[in-house]
C-alpha cells in the first residue's frame, strides 16, 4: 500500500470516527443563571448539538434525569437548593444514572473543588469564563471526536 493510499484510509477512518458521535444525543444543561443556559445552549447548537434541555438547579435536573434518558449532563456547581456537586453524587449513586457522562462547568476553580468533583466521578471540568473551543475539546474528551 502506497503512502497516498494509507493517507486516504487514515482520513476515512478519522471521518468515520467523527461520525461515531451521534449529534442527536440528548444533553441536559443545568445552571441557575439563564444567561449561562442560553450561552451553553447556543455554543452547543453551533457545535451541532440541537437536542438540549435545561434545568435551573440540581433538584430539578435530577427529576428530569429520572424522567427521561439523557446522554450527557453539563452542570454548574453553585446552585440552590441542590448544588451541581450534590447532583453529581446523586447521579453516581443511582444505579440507572451512574454511568451518565457528567461535565462540570463552573466558576469554582479552587483545587479542592476540582479534586472533590474528580473523586465524585465527574468526567471533565470547565472553568468559567470559557470559550467554544474549550467546550468542544472537553466534549470530545468525554464523547469522542465529532
Amino acid at each position: 500500500m502506497g503512502i497516498n493510499q494509507t493517507k486516504i484510509l487514515l482520513n476515512s477512518y478519522k471521518e468515520w470516527e467523527k461520525m461515531a458521535v451521534d449529534m442527536s444525543l440528548s444533553i441536559l444543561i443545568v445552571d441557575d443563571y439563564k444567561t449561562m443556559l442560553r450561552i451553553i445552549r447556543n455554543l452547543l447548537k453551533q457545535l451541532g448539538f440541537h437536542n438540549v434541555d435545561e434545568a435551573t438547579d440540581g433538584a430539578e435536573a435530577l427529576n428530569k434525569l429520572r424522567g427521561k434518558n439523557y446522554d450527557l449532563v453539563i452542570s454548574d456547581w453553585n446552585m440552590e437548593p441542590m448544588t451541581g456537586y450534590e447532583l453529581l453524587k446523586e447521579v453516581r449513586s443511582d444505579d440507572m444514572l451512574k454511568s451518565l457522562p457528567f461535565i462540570m462547568v463552573t466558576a469554582e476553580s479552587k483545587t479542592d473543588n476540582v479534586i472533590a468533583a474528580k473523586k465524585a466521578g465527574v468526567n471533565n471540568y470547565i472553568v468559567k469564563p470559557f470559550n467554544a473551543a474549550t467546550l468542544k475539546s472537553k466534549l470530545t474528551s468525554v464523547l469522542g471526536e465529532f
Binding site: T35, M36, I39, Q46, K128, F130
Partner: peptide
C-alpha cells in the same frame, strides 16, 4: 458572522461571573 456571533456569546459569560 458565525464567528462573531460565537465571540459575543462567549463574552456574555461576564454576566454569570459578575452575578456570582
Amino acid at each position: 458572522l458565525v464567528e462573531i456571533s460565537t465571540n459575543l456569546f462567549e463574552a456574555s459569560c461576564f454576566q454569570d461571573i459578575t452575578g456570582q
